[in-house]
Design a protein around this nucleic acid. Sequence first.
RNA 1: GGCGCCGUACCCAAGCGGUUAAGGGAGUGGAUUGCAAAUCCAUGAUUCAGCGGUUCGAGUCCGCUCGGCGCCUCCA
Length: 474
Amino acid sequence: MKTLRLYNSDGRELQEFKPLESGHAGLYCCGPTVYNYAHIGNLRAYTHWDILRRTLERFGYEVKHVMNITDVGHLTDDGDEGEDKMLKGARERDMSVWEIAEFFTKAFFKDIERLNILTPTVSCKATGHIDDMIALVKRLEERGFTYESGGNIYFDSTKLPDYGRMALLDRQNLQHGARVALDTNKHSPFDFVLWFTKSKFENQAMMWDSPWGRGYPGWHIECSAMSSKYLGERIDIHTGGIDHIPVHHTNEIAQSEGAFGHHWVNYWVHNEFLIMKEGKISKSKGSFLTLQKLIDDGYEALDYRYFLLGGHYRSQLIFSEESLDGARSARKSLLGRVASFYREIKGSPLPDISDLGKASFSRIEAFDAALGEDLNTPRALAELWQLVKDETIPAAERLAAVLDMDGVLGLNLEEAGEETAGTGEDDELSALLTRRREAREAKNWAAADEIRDELAERGWKVVDTPEGPRLEKA
RNA sequence: GGCGCCGUACCCAAGCGGUUAAGGGAGUGGAUUGCAAAUCCAUGAUUCAGCGGUUCGAGUCCGCUCGGCGCCUCCA
């Protein structure tokens, strides 16, 4: 089995991935809060975790991929006077909170699909697992990690000696309340709510009965409850955005290790942010870019995927129209090369990967090595390009190898084969091409260009080559 | 105030002590072309923000300076 080294945030170093169970990998990814559309920064995270999953599978692991859908409302930003995010979304769109959750969950999965991100083995909604959360809070209560204050149940962070170890939190020097008012019910600033019965928001729409009274769960508990339900009380890999390290994941670790009584997640993988020139993209600041907006602007979803793969997941990536244009050009050019391979092999079967020559096989090995080294997609893409441009390798081999690589990259390169397959098969199209050829031979350029325009209207672009004209999908 | 990240050619971006500093985009030159598009070929940093230091050897390690970003509040 190929080795995969991952940067583990818990310990802050590159470590070789060793599964709990040989040949299997449990992957938990912090999913979206469905109160609004996902923006392109959110989508960056899911794309890189997709690469992680596909790499694990390529390297021989059977992956169980679990992702939560947070459909219970939590705090809005500090600019809003303490309103529930789901409630806010519902009010703005004149829907119920349940409808809002449903609506944006669908929108999210549509984006995921367009970006060719594999759907998780298990997608679980927070609202469907309230009982599991209550059970977990009870367990924490029995083990002495909780206290009641002001009607809410809190986790007592002082009961866990290494609280904050992953985030390297300095308990003494952190300036609490620097940006947000302190919760006076807390005994210690790091404590957090496990169960609310005293909502500070009015009109809380989602409430459930519990041993502590009618209310709703704290934000962090859902991930601990659902991940342990589907992956067990020890997990191979847990992913999330880098922003989650200090609070959300720190608290997940605290409550999970408190409840289970042992180490919980072996590898924590965190992605950096996509940023704009002006700084990071923020949902709470109102306007933000969605995948749909990019598509409306004439890009394809996979152009964006290609763009994302050009940067390493642990580096901030600068988004701009110019860089997305670059990605689009690159992907188009790549598809063009792959299409030419398809034309060259004329439908003959592709060689098996194991039968490839030394040159192409070593490219694949370098490609895998790049992925194995903390998912270095920029280097993997570079290997792909080197392979594609290597004239010493037969087209059939290059095609076989590049499609093999695409199993991880997910750029749908095989679609380049479909375009050429349709060429000339349609009688009307061939008739038009023939008429254009005749016009050109008669040097009747006006007529020839007219036909070219007509073909363009039908979605085909004429490409004149030394071997004659060829049609490509526009 | 605390914690963390980054500064590589016009743009995006690899690189993690040692041959000529990946790759893509843009640009430029050429081939091809009725024109156009597309395609193909060629071409780019004596240098890695700056200044010191460690080392036989540094973009890569250490220190300082300048500049940018994120987190400490829900956020990928």
